[in-house]
């Protein structure tokens, strides 16, 4: 499982696997938008009608939301609320936690239903959890093998200065 403090690394192969799972979930649940967010608020992947959506803000607020309800849960002696549901006039948001660290967000309207979304999310969650476990072991392997040096090992002060010009 991903520890709360280990830094998250995403590779092409796992990213493609995740996208495929999200796209399938989007179809099977008849939903509008699906995205995955790190608990720290970083967007990992998104699919569906994202063109007019500020996914960065959504990611940050979702993480804040999960963090706040997690705090509430602790206060009443629960570990965490693993599913949150917000009902709107047209659109609804279903939020769930995968593998303790990643947040899955599904936005859907009257073309779908809470029951259907819940059912499909359950299945997809298990498969996504497997991918994230693979990611963790891959990251650990890469960290010990010297054959794949980090691209950041060579960062110079000049590189950093250039960012601000």
């Amino acid at each position: 499982m991903l520890g709360p403090q280990s830094s998250l690394v995403m590779y092409d192969e796992e990213y493609q696997r995740i996208l495929l799972l999200l796209e399938r979930l989007l179809r099977e649940s008849n939903s509008k938008v699906i995205f995955l967010v790190d608990k720290n608020g970083q967007l990992i992947a998104a699919t569906g009608e994202t063109a007019n959506l500020d996914t960065t803000s959504l990611a940050s607020l979702t993480a804040g939301n999960i963090a706040a309800t997690g705090g509430l849960a602790k206060l009443i002696g629960e570990k965490e609320f693993s599913i949150l549901f917000h009902e709107g006039e047209k659109d609804n948001i279903h939020i769930s936690i995968i593998g303790g660290r990643v947040i899955l967000v599904v936005i859907f309207d009257q073309r779908s239903s809470l029951g259907l979304v819940r059912l499909r999310v359950k299945k997809a969650s298990n498969e996504l959890a497997v991918v994230f476990e693979d990611l963790v072991s891959k990251t650990e392997q890469q960290a010990v093998s010297s054959s794949a040096p980090s691209p950041f090992a060579e960062i110079t002060d000049d590189d950093i200065d250039n960012l601000f010009n």
């Binding site: 830094s7 690394v9 995403m10 590779y11 990213y15 720290n40 970083q42 990992i44 950041f152």
Partner: peptide, 15 residues
């Protein structure tokens, strides 16, 4: 913790 994304070639950091 930082998020390094090799797929989209991005580093994300939280300050």
């Amino acid at each position: 913790m930082s998020f390094i994304n090799y797929a989209s070639r991005e580093i994300n950091c939280k300050i």
